[in-house]
């Protein structure tokens, strides 16, 4: 197995084009596990650890451009104000050691339905920026990025450059179920974001469908109800019945399976509870901010 270590983004893209058999590796928290267990044996590893620009983040016009190689620890430390949902999710990733190594780019590359970063990216309306040497950069909305179980929209010659995430215009929440109180892979997860600027609601569901996905019907339902009842203006209390109905719609958007981590029924149930609670917390934060 070759170990390829480009020191610039352009070099990385060139190598990617030449070596379709290479597996890109950032923190290695997924890839190395697979290699250690001999689940895959790629012709080469393409180590992106020396590509400095991947480890940077910046903001432009209210959008955070998060380099694909920024580790979770830095998201928690640097971006809890701009990207509260993603920061909350980052805090639940693995152990401290995993959070120091692991990256959002890696989560997107693996595209596991259980990846913790996905739900907040979906809820915030993030866009994945990918690039190839031949065709340059293109942007893929997160909701279109996940194409199947552990599959994504990347072409064979593309690498993930960054994620573009609008700075939070309103409260965001992230909740995750695990059967112990730390270091768990999500049994189910939910993220929501309130976008009072455009009177919209964002959602993201994790570990409860073949891919991370939005609960579009729940989003539209809640935004419409808030509109209809004048709550966007009044910032009145969120009726419990509304939060509950939202939770049920979130659960209805999922299509989970039974597995060793949890039953499908529990995943649906927990999603409805998490969605109800999370949207209530978010709405209360919005009221407080008013």
């Amino acid at each position: 197995m070759d170990f390829l270590q480009p020191s610039s983004w352009q070099e990385a893209l060139d190598i990617r084009a030449e070596r379709p058999d290479a597996v890109p590796i950032a923190g290695g928290t997924d890839v190395m596990v697979d290699i250690n267990f001999d689940r895959r044996r790629p012709g080469a590893l393409l180590d992106l650890g020396r590509v400095a620009e991947l480890r940077e983040w910046g903001t432009e016009a209210g959008v955070v451009r998060l380099g694909a190689g920024v580790p979770y620890t830095r998201i928690v430390e640097d971006l809890a104000d701009r990207l509260p949902g993603l920061a909350m999710a980052s805090r639940t990733v693995g152990s401290p050691q995993i959070r120091i190594r692991g990256t959002v780019g890696g989560n997107l590359g693996s595209a596991s339905p259980a990846g913790d970063a996905h739900p907040p990216l979906l809820a915030a309306g993030a866009v994945v920026e990918v690039a190839s040497a031949a065709r340059g950069a293109r942007q893929i909305p997160a909701a279109e990025f996940y194409t199947g179980v552990k599959r994504n929209a990347l072409e064979a010659d593309e690498l993930i450059a960054a994620v573009l995430i609008p700075s939070a215009a309103g409260p965001q929440q992230f909740c995750k179920i695990g059967t112990r109180n730390a270091m768990v892979i999500a049994v189910s997860a939910f993220a929501c974001a309130l976008h009072p600027d455009r009177r919209a609601v964002g959602t993201g569901i994790g570990s409860a469908a073949p891919t991370p996905r939005r609960a579009v019907d729940a989003e539209d339902f809640l935004a419409g109800e808030l509109e209809g009842s004048g709550l966007w203006e009044s910032r009145g209390e969120l009726p419990e019945t509304l939060a509950r109905a939202f939770g049920e719609r979130v659960a209805a958007a999922a299509s989970p399976i039974d597995d060793v981590r949890g039953s499908a029924a529990y995943r649906l149930h927990s999603l409805s509870v998490m969605a109800r609670r999370a949207v209530t917390w978010a709405w209360n934060d919005l009221r407080k901010a008013a």
Binding site: K176, I177, G178, A182, R277, W281
Partner: peptide, 16 residues
Amino acid sequence: PRSLPGAVNNTTHGEG
């Protein structure tokens, strides 16, 4: 939050 069920997974703020 670390003292609550679910800890930093943020599943409850005391509800339930």
